[in-house]
Amino acid sequence: METILEPLQYAFFQKGLLVASLSGALLGFIGVYIVLRGMSYIGHGLSHSIFGGFAAAQLFAAQFYILGAGLWGIASALAINTVAKKSRVGADAAIGVITTASFALGVALFAKFGTSGPSFESALFGSILGITTEQIIGLLAVIVLTVGFVFLRYRALLFATFDPDVADVSGVKVNRIEAMLMIILSLAILATLTVVGVTLVAAMLVIPAVVARMLTDSFGKMLAISTIIGTFSGFTGMYISYYAGVPSGTMIVLVGATIFLLVLAVTGGRGLKRSVGLDAH
């Protein structure tokens, strides 16, 4: 009990724990749609792309860097979505070029001009230090937007995720839904970037969703289980990060990976069989 209560006396840890748990929940929730659409690579690329926007926005408009990085992220997300849909050959290569170029730009800008916000290492691997109330409010706003979108467009989103071609001819505005999903994904990455870190966000999008898929054949249950695993990973990872003295993102991801291994050991071939096809584009 002492182990749990001791760090809570620090305000920075309270905020960190809250943001890490909420981040895990958000990424676990939205990750179900990303993984089932075979977009895991896009999530990975997008987080790197946003890092470029993060660095550039700090340089040109430090006080609005979240806004700038958000716009950069949304533009990247829509560009990636367009490339992924329209390119018959080499979509992965195109995404790789767009996002890694953006990431390289971010690294160069950080190296040359430094930062007025989070440190380079914090941006890459996550940090519990310096979380502001504004960031918490921003994260809550993205959660409300995400849950609201999924709640109100549940059936159309499910149809567009499972069978976009038929959904399109059945009256579902697939392009609009996909664009909205990409915007929400970029906002979710931006809002969780400070705690989980750019390089590790993709793992938190993918791991809870894959584990949830291994545990259930029901879409509704997969959403719930993935959210719970994400929350648990964020919560537990923060504590381990505090005691181990390592970046929070690394421990959050390692907790998720440990859960994956445990579930794999329990479900064995049955779980793996369920997760087959999650990388299909």
Partner: peptide
């Protein structure tokens, strides 16, 4: 389609039903 998608037969059939209903 990906036949490993987490769906039951009835869930799959229901998704095409035109509706203005906003609840999941």
């Amino acid at each position: 389609v990906n036949w490993n998608f987490p769906l039951t037969v009835s869930e799959c059939v229901l998704m095409s039903r035109p509706t203005k209903r906003k609840l999941p």
